Measured scan of single mutants.
Amino acid sequence: NQASVVANQLIPINTALTLVMMRSEVVTPVGIPADDIPRLVSMQVNRAVPLGTTLMPDMVKGYP
């Protein structure tokens, strides 16, 4: 099973992602692959992302 990117904390709308905000976890449904975490750094979320939420491609501005 492939690990996905999961919010490690509440991420407010328009926040630029940092490594501490994300963790990898095997979840269903599958979200953004954990391998993409380095690419996500400094990209902004377009909505508030609660703790434990799987990051989906449509939540991150400019992804992929």
Score class of each variant (00 low, 15 high):
residue 1 N to C: 04
residue 1 N to M: 14
residue 1 N to E: 07
residue 2 Q to G: 14
residue 2 Q to E: 08
residue 2 Q to F: 15
residue 2 Q to I: 15
residue 2 Q to D: 06
residue 2 Q to C: 06
residue 2 Q to R: 11
residue 2 Q to H: 12
residue 2 Q to L: 14
residue 3 A to D: 06
residue 3 A to K: 12
residue 4 S to L: 02
residue 4 S to P: 00
residue 4 S to K: 00
residue 4 S to Y: 03
residue 4 S to I: 01
residue 5 V to E: 01
residue 5 V to Q: 00
residue 5 V to T: 08
residue 5 V to H: 01
residue 5 V to L: 03
residue 5 V to P: 01
residue 5 V to G: 01
residue 5 V to K: 01
residue 5 V to I: 12
residue 6 V to G: 01
residue 6 V to K: 03
residue 6 V to Y: 02
residue 6 V to M: 05
residue 6 V to W: 02
residue 6 V to P: 01
residue 7 A to I: 06
residue 7 A to Q: 01
residue 7 A to Y: 02
residue 8 N to E: 08
residue 8 N to G: 10
residue 8 N to W: 04
residue 8 N to C: 04
residue 8 N to D: 12
residue 8 N to R: 14
residue 9 Q to E: 12
residue 9 Q to N: 07
residue 9 Q to S: 09
residue 9 Q to M: 12
residue 9 Q to P: 01
residue 9 Q to R: 08
residue 9 Q to I: 05
residue 10 L to M: 13
residue 10 L to T: 13
residue 10 L to A: 12
residue 10 L to C: 05
residue 10 L to S: 12
residue 10 L to H: 10
residue 10 L to P: 13
residue 10 L to N: 13
residue 11 I to E: 02
residue 11 I to F: 02
residue 11 I to A: 01
residue 11 I to K: 00
residue 11 I to H: 01
residue 11 I to N: 00
residue 12 P to W: 04
residue 12 P to K: 08
residue 12 P to S: 07
residue 12 P to D: 11
residue 12 P to F: 06
residue 12 P to N: 09
residue 12 P to I: 05
residue 12 P to G: 07
residue 12 P to R: 06
residue 12 P to L: 10
residue 12 P to V: 07
residue 13 I to N: 12
residue 13 I to S: 12
residue 13 I to A: 15
residue 14 N to C: 04
residue 14 N to H: 14
residue 14 N to V: 03
residue 14 N to R: 10
residue 14 N to M: 09
residue 15 T to P: 00
residue 15 T to F: 06
residue 15 T to M: 09
residue 16 A to L: 14
residue 16 A to V: 09
residue 16 A to C: 05
residue 16 A to D: 09
residue 16 A to G: 15
residue 16 A to F: 13
residue 16 A to M: 11
residue 16 A to I: 12
residue 16 A to R: 11
residue 16 A to S: 10
residue 16 A to P: 15
residue 16 A to E: 11
residue 17 L to R: 00
residue 17 L to M: 08
residue 17 L to N: 00
residue 17 L to F: 02
residue 18 T to S: 14
residue 18 T to Q: 11
residue 18 T to H: 06
residue 19 L to M: 14
residue 19 L to V: 09
residue 19 L to Y: 09
residue 19 L to Q: 09
residue 19 L to G: 06
residue 20 V to W: 07
residue 20 V to L: 09
residue 20 V to M: 08
residue 20 V to S: 14
residue 20 V to K: 07
residue 20 V to C: 05
residue 20 V to D: 11
residue 21 M to P: 02
residue 21 M to L: 06
residue 21 M to T: 03
residue 21 M to S: 06
residue 21 M to H: 11
residue 21 M to C: 03
residue 21 M to I: 03
residue 22 M to I: 11
residue 22 M to E: 02
residue 22 M to T: 02
residue 22 M to F: 07
residue 22 M to S: 01
residue 22 M to Q: 00
residue 23 R to I: 07
residue 24 S to F: 06
residue 24 S to P: 10
residue 24 S to H: 09
residue 24 S to V: 15
residue 24 S to T: 11
residue 24 S to L: 06
residue 24 S to A: 15
residue 24 S to M: 11
residue 25 E to H: 11
residue 25 E to M: 11
residue 25 E to A: 15
residue 25 E to S: 08
residue 25 E to W: 07
residue 25 E to N: 08
residue 25 E to I: 07
residue 25 E to V: 14
residue 26 V to M: 10
residue 26 V to A: 10
residue 26 V to S: 09
residue 26 V to E: 08
residue 26 V to I: 12
residue 26 V to K: 14
residue 26 V to N: 11
residue 26 V to D: 06
residue 26 V to L: 13
residue 27 V to Y: 02
residue 27 V to R: 15
residue 27 V to N: 03
residue 27 V to W: 03
residue 28 T to E: 13
residue 28 T to Q: 12
residue 28 T to S: 15
residue 28 T to P: 00
residue 28 T to K: 15
residue 28 T to Y: 12
residue 28 T to R: 10
residue 28 T to W: 15
residue 29 P to C: 04
residue 29 P to H: 04
residue 29 P to I: 06
residue 29 P to G: 03
residue 29 P to R: 05
residue 29 P to E: 06
residue 29 P to D: 05
residue 30 V to Q: 12
residue 30 V to P: 14
residue 30 V to W: 10
residue 30 V to N: 15
residue 30 V to Y: 15
residue 30 V to H: 14
residue 30 V to T: 12
residue 31 G to A: 03
residue 31 G to T: 01
residue 31 G to W: 02
residue 31 G to E: 01
residue 31 G to P: 00
residue 31 G to C: 03
residue 31 G to N: 00
residue 31 G to D: 00
residue 31 G to Q: 02
residue 32 I to Q: 01
residue 32 I to W: 03
residue 32 I to D: 00
residue 32 I to S: 00
residue 32 I to Y: 01
residue 32 I to P: 00
residue 33 P to S: 11
residue 33 P to L: 08
residue 33 P to W: 07
residue 33 P to T: 10
residue 33 P to M: 07
residue 33 P to V: 08
residue 33 P to N: 08
residue 33 P to Q: 08
residue 33 P to F: 08
residue 34 A to L: 03
residue 34 A to M: 07
residue 34 A to I: 07
residue 34 A to S: 09
residue 34 A to N: 06
residue 34 A to W: 09
residue 35 D to Q: 11
residue 35 D to R: 07
residue 35 D to F: 13
residue 35 D to S: 15
residue 35 D to A: 11
residue 35 D to E: 15
residue 36 D to P: 00
residue 36 D to F: 15
residue 36 D to R: 13
residue 36 D to T: 12
residue 36 D to E: 13
residue 36 D to G: 07
residue 36 D to S: 08
residue 37 I to E: 03
residue 37 I to N: 01
residue 37 I to H: 02
residue 37 I to D: 01
residue 37 I to Q: 05
residue 37 I to K: 06
residue 37 I to M: 15
residue 37 I to P: 01
residue 38 P to N: 10
residue 38 P to W: 15
residue 38 P to E: 12
residue 38 P to K: 11
residue 38 P to Q: 12
residue 38 P to H: 15
residue 38 P to D: 11
residue 38 P to C: 04
residue 39 R to P: 03
residue 39 R to T: 10
residue 39 R to M: 11
residue 39 R to H: 14
residue 39 R to V: 11
residue 40 L to S: 00
residue 40 L to A: 00
residue 40 L to M: 07
residue 40 L to C: 03
residue 40 L to H: 01
residue 40 L to Y: 03
residue 40 L to F: 02
residue 40 L to V: 04
residue 41 V to T: 06
residue 41 V to R: 07
residue 41 V to W: 03
residue 41 V to Y: 05
residue 41 V to Q: 07
residue 41 V to A: 05
residue 41 V to G: 02
residue 42 S to P: 00
residue 42 S to Q: 10
residue 42 S to K: 12
residue 42 S to H: 15
residue 42 S to C: 06
residue 42 S to E: 13
residue 42 S to I: 03
residue 43 M to P: 00
residue 43 M to A: 10
residue 43 M to V: 07
residue 43 M to N: 05
residue 43 M to G: 03
residue 44 Q to D: 04
residue 44 Q to W: 14
residue 44 Q to G: 04
residue 44 Q to H: 15
residue 44 Q to N: 08
residue 44 Q to F: 12
residue 44 Q to P: 06
residue 44 Q to R: 14
residue 45 V to W: 01
residue 45 V to D: 01
residue 45 V to M: 06
residue 45 V to L: 11
residue 45 V to E: 01
residue 45 V to Q: 00
residue 45 V to H: 01
residue 46 N to H: 10
residue 46 N to P: 02
residue 46 N to S: 15
residue 46 N to A: 10
residue 46 N to W: 07
residue 47 R to E: 14
residue 47 R to C: 05
residue 47 R to Y: 10
residue 47 R to D: 06
residue 47 R to W: 05
residue 47 R to K: 13
residue 48 A to Y: 12
residue 48 A to Q: 15
residue 48 A to D: 14
residue 48 A to M: 13
residue 48 A to T: 07
residue 49 V to F: 02
residue 49 V to L: 09
residue 49 V to K: 02
residue 50 P to T: 11
residue 50 P to A: 08
residue 50 P to L: 12
residue 50 P to C: 05
residue 51 L to T: 10
residue 51 L to P: 07
residue 51 L to W: 14
residue 51 L to F: 13
residue 51 L to I: 13
residue 52 G to P: 00
residue 52 G to A: 06
residue 52 G to H: 08
residue 52 G to V: 01
residue 52 G to Y: 04
residue 52 G to L: 04
residue 52 G to N: 15
residue 53 T to M: 11
residue 53 T to L: 08
residue 53 T to Y: 09
residue 53 T to V: 14
residue 53 T to W: 09
residue 54 T to D: 02
residue 54 T to Q: 03
residue 54 T to K: 04
residue 54 T to M: 03
residue 54 T to F: 03
residue 54 T to A: 06
residue 54 T to G: 02
residue 54 T to V: 07
residue 54 T to L: 04
residue 54 T to H: 03
residue 55 L to C: 02
residue 55 L to Y: 00
residue 55 L to G: 00
residue 55 L to T: 00
residue 55 L to E: 00
residue 55 L to S: 00
residue 55 L to N: 01
residue 56 M to C: 04
residue 56 M to D: 04
residue 56 M to I: 06
residue 56 M to T: 12
residue 56 M to E: 07
residue 56 M to A: 06
residue 56 M to V: 08
residue 57 P to E: 09
residue 57 P to D: 06
residue 57 P to I: 06
residue 57 P to G: 08
residue 57 P to Q: 08
residue 58 D to C: 04
residue 58 D to K: 08
residue 58 D to L: 08
residue 58 D to W: 10
residue 58 D to T: 09
residue 58 D to M: 08
residue 58 D to H: 12
residue 58 D to A: 10
residue 58 D to R: 13
residue 59 M to I: 05
residue 59 M to K: 01
residue 59 M to V: 05
residue 59 M to D: 13
residue 59 M to L: 05
residue 59 M to S: 05
residue 59 M to W: 10
residue 59 M to P: 00
residue 60 V to I: 12
residue 60 V to L: 07
residue 60 V to A: 01
residue 61 K to S: 10
residue 61 K to T: 15
residue 61 K to D: 14
residue 62 G to V: 05
residue 62 G to L: 08
residue 62 G to M: 11
residue 62 G to K: 07
residue 63 Y to L: 08
residue 63 Y to N: 06
residue 63 Y to V: 05
residue 63 Y to K: 05
residue 63 Y to T: 06
residue 63 Y to H: 05
residue 63 Y to Q: 05
residue 64 P to G: 13
residue 64 P to Y: 08
residue 64 P to S: 13
residue 64 P to D: 14
residue 64 P to F: 09
residue 64 P to R: 03
residue 64 P to M: 12
residue 64 P to T: 15
residue 64 P to K: 04
residue 64 P to V: 12
residue 64 P to W: 06
